[in-house]
Amino acid sequence: MSVGRRMLITGLSSFWGGRLAQEFERDPGVEVVVGMDSRPPVVALGRTEFVRADETYSILSRLVRATQVDTIVHAGLIVDSSSQSARVLHEHNVIGTMNLLASAAAEDSRVTTVVVKSSTLVYGSARRDPTWFAEDSRRTSPARTPVERSLLEAEELIEAFVEENPGVRAAVLRCANVLGEDLVTALSRALCGPVTPVVAGFDPQLQFVEQEDVIRAIRFVVARGLEGVFNVAGDGRLPWSEIRAMAGHFPLPLSPVLTGLAVLPLSRLGLLRLAPETLELLRFGRGVDNTKLKHAGFRYNFTTAGAVRHFVEARRVGRVAGDRPAYRYESDVEAFFRHSPAVVVPPA
């Protein structure tokens, strides 16, 4: 019997799930890649098997049993709340994680490794924050936004899972705000528009991580079998004003008092999509200490400044040459290429 890894990737149709599946497909040490999501994938995949599930992953225990996966990469946590309702966030992040962990802890499961992609949103953003959060720092303000609460709850579930299942290696990667040419986040949208929202009078320091560094970090943690919580973020922080200047946009000052109210009409008109946690971030910023993962041997390709510059340069190309054509998943085509005897598979 082969000794290759059997992987399950949740959130396959998110940018992260898709990119990770592409990566693990290429890895000869990975025998099987199963991807799960409620929507069809958005990137071209080779040998990944796509399973459509509902958003709470209720079929997971069957799937884990049937596929005998040993590694689960939970890339399906929603961290951008501007596109989802509070209910969906809770179902997806909390109930989805609960079902995932339950299936991994089931008696007949062969799961030995669970890697979860979380976010530095769990630290919040408040005036009492330290300049750099370490993995064991506590947040200084109660979590008020639905996305932060759901992520905290999901991490609590993982903590309990770790205690109850000492045989399973579990790692949580808390990623800082990600920038990348293929990824749309609340902040990347803010840097793409003609004007960039700023909270008047505040110039917070933000930290970013490049999208490929996140992919590499997840692969690194899977390959090394690391356990515990890790911050994933580029070195250094940059003031929002400097980031905006790098992107070459004009500021759109928002009132420093009653900011949420000031944003409301703009968001109703669809001019601005800023989640409450993003508004707090644009006021106080956030920095996380990335030394724990670096001490484990990981090397970032991009600093915060490098990630911002890389993103800005990619946007310039995109503006001139147009964005890359979007991929569309056709189940018949995919089934043909995967299972038809007519397809000649080149020897590995």
Partner: peptide, 18 residues
Amino acid sequence: ALLPLRKPDAAPQETRLG
């Protein structure tokens, strides 16, 4: 196993505006 996909940019990343 962990080779970066894109060629990391060669220019120094520390050129800052501020």
